[in-house]
Amino acid sequence: MIQLQNASLSYDLATQVLDKITLSVGRGEFVSLLGPSGCGKSTLLRLIAGLVEPSHGQLTVGGQPARRFRQTSNGISLVFQEPRLLPWRNVTRNIALPLELSRVDRADQQAFIEASLELIGLGPQDAAKYPRMLSGGMRMRVALARALVTKPSVLLLDEPFSALDELLRQQLNEELLRIWRERAPTTVFVTHNVSEAIFLSQRVVVMADHPGRIKATVDVPFEYPRSHTLRATREFATLVGEVSDLLRVETT
């Protein structure tokens, strides 16, 4: 689904942000990009989204350039580190935004919005609230609902839960997995949290920085559905240790 072939990005001669990234993500796969801060993983995500063009190398999504793929009805959605909701719109109108931009009729929008609200566990009592009335966790749920309203084929998430407390992060991890298993978008999840990356993904892509490049890819052998009890198992802890060691080498 997503193919990067030696993709590189530099802003000028001195700044090489990404160096020869070769990565393949299959349809419906869940892959994490794990790396230290500043290693270019967010930039790589923007590259996949077609918001930035690579300076060298190739990138295709669904066999097409990312920008063209976005025009297809089930395009690409992105969830940012901050919820980035529009403060002048209530929850419903915020979720409706991608539909509005694609010029879906108001009447038709309702069904999509309701499905999204239900998927993310928000009730009708939340639909009319404004962002300033919501907690951080709630706002992130709305941001997720907004990303899912168009039923995207590709879902990109840029450290969406890093600003939330541990328990909430774990809950949202489990919800994200439930949604992924139900809707099966091709998902790329950026994080610097090793435990989160392993819990969520089928594959963890470990990145190094300066310049951003892929250091290693680790397959995660655990079956789905994954429950929170997985985190307490020995196998999980061992894998976390191994991947952390991989990361540790890179940051010295």
Binding site: A49, L51, R70, L78, E82, R84, L86, L97, E100
Partner: peptide, 26 residues
Amino acid sequence: VDRDLVDLFELHNANRWQVLFKLRVP
């Protein structure tokens, strides 16, 4: 305007007027 929001609009293929009236003006 916040860069992430501009990116969000671009991601969903918004045209110039949509960005102006739905994002920049408010």
